[in-house]
Amino acid sequence: MLSTWTFMKRFARSPAAIGSIVPSSRFLVTRMLESVDWQTTDHIVELGAGTGVITAAIDAQRKPGSTFISFERDDDMRHELNARFPDVHTHHDAFLLPDVLANHDLNSVDCVISGLPFANFDNQQRHALFSDIHAALRPGGVFIAFQYTRLLQPYFLSVYGRYECKRVLINIPPALVYFCTKQ
């Protein structure tokens, strides 16, 4: 498994792509996944899997036979995810979400869980990805994302109508977890 030291080196090399100096804490992972109804969740997408901290928790909680698609841009991290989670479909580029879902014969998903550093993307990239996420969710589907800033709150409000935000202080840095449901 990739160490925290390796993660820190990757952050130093490309902070805009990695987004955090260390992997997510177990407290952040718990907060992100606590509201997912795993018994009714058949299709899950994870964006920005990193070292697999959230991936492992999703994989442990998802029901047998569910589809789990994960995206990670870093080649080394993605190869390790492939080795650790052979039943998870890993892909390179979250910006290809619609194409990947089509290749898996999925019209919609129940849940999108994101660790991507959206604040580091330019407005065009952010808008494109948010549009793809919203389009991918079934009605009643949930989008869960952690961020380190409130920058995205106007977007969540304009697209989802309402959202819930919870703080996770025991994380480096402290994080905000956004829960959005597609109407």
Score class of each variant (00 low, 15 high):
residue 1 M to W: 12
residue 2 L to V: 09
residue 4 T to N: 13
residue 4 T to H: 10
residue 5 W to Q: 14
residue 6 T to Y: 14
residue 6 T to S: 12
residue 6 T to K: 13
residue 6 T to V: 10
residue 6 T to W: 13
residue 9 K to N: 07
residue 12 A to S: 13
residue 12 A to E: 12
residue 13 R to T: 08
residue 13 R to F: 10
residue 14 S to E: 08
residue 15 P to C: 09
residue 17 A to M: 15
residue 18 I to Q: 00
residue 21 I to L: 08
residue 21 I to P: 02
residue 23 P to V: 03
residue 27 F to L: 04
residue 28 L to I: 05
residue 29 V to G: 01
residue 31 R to P: 05
residue 32 M to C: 05
residue 32 M to V: 07
residue 33 L to H: 06
residue 37 D to W: 01
residue 40 T to V: 09
residue 40 T to N: 00
residue 41 T to F: 05
residue 46 E to Q: 03
residue 52 G to P: 05
residue 52 G to V: 04
residue 54 I to E: 00
residue 64 P to W: 01
residue 65 G to L: 04
residue 65 G to V: 03
residue 68 F to V: 03
residue 71 F to T: 06
residue 71 F to W: 00
residue 71 F to C: 02
residue 72 E to A: 00
residue 72 E to S: 08
residue 73 R to H: 14
residue 73 R to L: 10
residue 74 D to L: 01
residue 76 D to N: 07
residue 79 H to W: 05
residue 82 N to D: 15
residue 82 N to Y: 11
residue 83 A to Q: 13
residue 83 A to P: 07
residue 84 R to N: 07
residue 85 F to I: 07
residue 86 P to L: 04
residue 88 V to P: 02
residue 92 H to L: 08
residue 92 H to V: 13
residue 94 A to T: 11
residue 95 F to N: 03
residue 98 P to G: 02
residue 98 P to F: 06
residue 98 P to V: 04
residue 99 D to P: 06
residue 99 D to I: 12
residue 100 V to Q: 08
residue 103 N to A: 15
residue 103 N to M: 12
residue 105 D to C: 04
residue 106 L to A: 04
residue 107 N to G: 10
residue 108 S to F: 07
residue 109 V to F: 06
residue 111 C to M: 10
residue 112 V to I: 12
residue 113 I to N: 05
residue 113 I to C: 04
residue 114 S to I: 06
residue 114 S to M: 00
residue 115 G to R: 02
residue 117 P to Q: 00
residue 119 A to L: 10
residue 122 D to Y: 09
residue 124 Q to Y: 14
residue 125 Q to M: 13
residue 126 R to K: 15
residue 126 R to P: 11
residue 127 H to V: 13
residue 129 L to P: 04
residue 129 L to C: 09
residue 130 F to S: 05
residue 130 F to P: 05
residue 130 F to V: 12
residue 131 S to P: 07
residue 133 I to Y: 06
residue 134 H to I: 12
residue 137 L to P: 11
residue 140 G to R: 06
residue 140 G to V: 03
residue 142 V to L: 07
residue 148 Y to I: 00
residue 150 R to W: 10
residue 151 L to R: 11
residue 154 P to W: 11
residue 154 P to Y: 10
residue 157 L to H: 13
residue 161 G to D: 07
residue 163 Y to I: 14
residue 164 E to R: 14
residue 164 E to P: 06
residue 165 C to V: 07
residue 166 K to W: 09
residue 169 L to H: 10
residue 173 P to N: 12
residue 176 L to C: 07
residue 177 V to C: 02
residue 179 F to V: 13
residue 180 C to V: 05
residue 181 T to H: 03
residue 181 T to I: 14
residue 182 K to G: 07
residue 183 Q to P: 11
residue 183 Q to K: 09
residue 183 Q to R: 14
